[in-house]
Nucleic acid binder design. Structure first.
Lengths: 264, 264
DNA sequence: GAGATGGTTCCATATAGTGGAACTCAATTC
DNA sequence: GAATTGAGTTCCACTATATGGAACCATCTC
């Protein structure tokens, strides 16, 4: 009675599913879209899509720009996400530990969770002298070519891991990107052995990181933590020096997560 | 053909509306909830609510904690909100101006927008601490007893203003809270005259602020900016000294907002 | 093991969503 | 300045979906 939760999360259940799918599509544009642009990528007929968009707009999930005639994700989402971030993400309870780690290592720290095979960054601490990079809370990244992504996938139960691998886009961002399911799978095995994952410039040239999974009780992976730097500042070997403190912080966060209780 | 957009945003359109209403209710709990707790506050019969919650969960809008049997807003929201924040909020384009203001005055800065009569904070600069994302952005506050709330309401067109006033809860937080529609309305008139709003310990004892609306082209209010401090640090008269620089920053943000174009 | 309580499934009915087609209102084009 | 195009919107007969009362299934509690 407890395995359908895993296999659930299919494509479209009912009208609500369709509406949310449309929301996702709009968000993917990363800029306000016209109705027609949306129509082109949508599988719905004009009238149907129109009504869905109308509903979402009237609900504040979409914002309609009258002047330009464009739609963008609405502010109601920001409000809802605040609650989600506080309650469903590791960020709030991990905060003190991340602060501590940040002070110790003085490099950029990322806290991420896995969402449908993609990396979702839920918190970030900048280096004292920050490197300008992608990522902010709420931003998503690829799983197959980031330290946190690989760290989490490696510790997933086999079926979930396969599922996650299947969802990867495998774009060759840099010469070192692992751009095939086979290469990734092999790497994940090694990470599972090693306990930590490295990003060896696989996503961005010159950017490297060391990442560790956050595992609670039964070995279930709930997130990952990473220390990121650039080759100008440190080498891969230099990052290795952070291995212990990174793992320790990950353990501490895991422990906090297990005992986490909301005030009643 | 352009006035129904204003009057729209009614309560429940269709199934999607109902589902989102449930989401809101769950978010309002500010902690994970059991199905039954939800049932108590919900107007839907058991079976109906059950299906709605199932759908939302399967869609990743809710996260279900198997062990505790509780629901909380899901991570998919965080992801969607990131897009919303970048595209529909003033925060990204206002950032440089807020940074500047923050450095000049060395006090806490809030950037807010109005969402259904409530204040939605979209960015914050805290003198001591670095940038926190959703911990603060996404938070909602009351409109009638905050500087930003009053600043925005004052500059709303009459019908919208009345609507906003009607949505206020009017809780007497402190002795100075304006706890009636009449008192608030009178204050708003003065703010409209003055150009800036003050929070005279109306929300929290000892906390005061000065706020200015952000008005674009036709005088449409799109947000508000405030400088907050405590009576330990400054007096109300002290805040008045910031009036000019606050108004100037608000104008700058408004200007930037008008010329804001997304890269095609 | 009888009685609560919290959670899940069924199924005939009612309701809300669907989408093809027709229409409006610009902005172009000839 | 009439004709054309294309985005955006409305209509309405048809259907798929949501609905919710009731029955069912677990657990806990005494």
């Amino acid at each position: 009675m407890n395995d359908q939760t895993t296999k659930a999360q299919r494509k479209g259940d009912g009208t609500v599913g369709k509406a949310l799918e449309v929301l996702d599509q709009i968000a993917e544009f990363e800029r306000p879209v016209r109705f027609n642009e949306l129509l082109e990528v949508s599988e719905h007929p004009k009238a149907t899509l129109y009504r869905l968009v109308q509903t979402l707009t009237s609900q504040g999930m979409l914002a309609f720009d009258q002047d330009r005639g464009t739609y963008a994700p609405g502010l109601r989402l920001v409000r809802l996400a605040h609650a989600a971030w506080r309650q469903s993400s590791l960020a709030p309870l991990a905060r003190p530990f991340i602060d501590g780690l940040s002070q110790q290592v003085g490099e950029t720290i990322h806290l991420a969770q896995l969402d449908r095979g993609q990396v979702l960054y839920v918190d970030k601490r900048n280096a004292v002298r920050p490197i300008e990079m992608f990522s902010q809370a709420g931003k998503v990244g690829p799983g197959y070519c980031t330290g946190v992504g690989k760290a989490m996938m490696a510790f997933l139960p086999p079926s979930d891991r396969d599922d996650a691998i299947r969802r990867q886009a495998f774009v060759q961002h840099t010469p070192t990107t692992l751009a095939s399911a086979e290469a990734l799978s092999k790497e994940l095995d090694e990470i599972l052995d090693e306990g930590v994952a490295y990003d060896r410039e696989e996503h961005e040239q010159g950017i490297i990181c060391i990442a560790a999974p956050i595992l609670i009780d039964n070995g279930r992976v709930v997130g990952a933590l990473s220390i990121t730097t650039s080759l100008q500042r440190r080498s891969l070997e230099g990052l290795e020096a952070f291995r212990d403190v990174l793992l320790e912080t990950a353990t501490n966060i895991a422990e906090a997560a297990e005992n986490w209780q909301f005030p009643s």
